[in-house]
Structure formats: C-alpha cells, structure tokens
C-alpha cells in the first residue's frame, strides 16, 4: 500500500534498528545541544519535547539517554522517568525490527480493530507495548485516532499505513515485511543501515 519514500516533516525517518544494543549517546547529546533555555522554568518546559525527539529518533528512551536529558536540562533522572512512564508515546524498552501501530480509535473499533489486537496476541503472543521474543515485531495499540478513518481499521507498520485490515491481511502484511527485511539484509550483509 501507500509507501512514502519522500522525506517530509510529517514523515520523520526513524533511525535504523539498533536492537538491544545501547542507544548511541553521542546522538542524544547532539539532540540536546539544540535545546536552549534562559531559566529553570523554561528548562522544565523542554523536558517533554526533548524526550519526544529522543523517542522519535530511536523508538525508545534508555536509562542512559534519560540521564543525559536530565543533565542537559538541569533536572533529575527521577523526574524524567516520571514523564516517560506517564505519557503513552514513550517507551523505555527498545522496539522490534518492525513496529506495528494498530489504531484503536472509535472508528477503527466499530469496524473491527479489536479483532486485530486479539489476533496479534493469539498469533504472535504480544500485547500493547510488547515485543516478540525474536525481536522481529513490537506492537503499540493507539488509544486515539490515526486520522485515516475512512480506511478503518487502520494499521501503520513501520513507515506505511494500510487500511481495511482483517486478521488474515494483517498476517500477510507482517510476514511480507519480515521476509523483505531479511532478504535485504542477506544481500547487503547483515545489519546494514538501511
């Protein structure tokens, strides 16, 4: 389905999958170097935005990354963790090679998203926020609307949206993505940064 190759502000290109290895902290430092503030109040206002950027870049925020954010903004890692664990967008565990968002907005619910979530649980053994043991797939159930309601039920696998999903089409979609990535890695040599 729709594949957006073009770079666009609405399409932040995620960093290559880094697996369970640690986040490159120099990149976090580089991200933090763009945050400037005049006083402690302003610094506190920036914590969420900073976490958002780190999370968007790596797909999760590690403890070490949280420490750097805290230090750069003159606060404690406890404070940063309080936010990481409160806001649904943030993850404190790495994502799988493929990250699946299942829209669970009302429109998608009415048209069957519940069955998709159940299917992922039955078929891949993961629930919201979890990753399969082989680290191939992680799931996030979006408790809002992905904004393409006329395609309900909608999923977003990595970069591309697919609509009108059924459990069968979803399995096919996931299998294709996993197979595609592996084929690419074999021809490029493992862990190429594509």
């Amino acid at each position: 389905m729709a594949q957006a190759e073009t770079r666009h502000p609405a399409h932040p290109v995620p960093a290559p999958y880094t697996g369970r290895t640690a986040i490159d902290l120099d990149v976090v430092r580089e991200i933090m170097s763009h945050f400037h503030y005049d006083d402690f109040e302003e610094a506190q206002e920036l914590i969420l935005s900073a976490l958002q950027e780190v999370n968007e870049h790596f797909g999760w925020v590690s403890y070490e990354a949280a420490e750097i954010v805290a230090e750069a903004l003159g606060t404690t890692v406890n404070r940063v963790y309080a936010l990481l664990t409160f806001y649904a967008d943030f993850r404190t565990e790495p994502r799988g090679v493929h990250h699946l968002l299942v829209c669970h907005g009302v429109s998608c619910y009415v048209l069957g998203s519940q069955a998709l979530v159940q299917h992922i649980r039955d078929h891949y053994g993961i629930g919201d926020g979890e990753t399969t043991a082989d680290e191939q797939l992680s799931l996030q159930v979006v408790n809002g609307c992905l904004g393409v309601c006329d395609w309900s039920p909608v999923v977003k696998l990595d970069d591309s949206y697919s609509g009108h999903q059924t459990p069968e089409s979803l399995t096919a979609l996931i299998n294709r993505a996993i197979a595609g990535k592996q084929a690419k890695e074999e021809s490029n040599g493992a862990h190429s940064a594509d």
Partner: peptide, 15 residues
C-alpha cells in the same frame, strides 16, 4: 497534503 492524504500516498503523488 495532509496527514490523512499522506497515509494514502499523497507525497508520492506530489513527487
């Protein structure tokens, strides 16, 4: 170009 049309490939159409 809006987030709903991007999901349906509007950026590719633009390109």
């Amino acid at each position: 170009i809006g987030s709903s049309s991007i999901a349906k490939g509007a950026l590719d159409v633009l390109a």
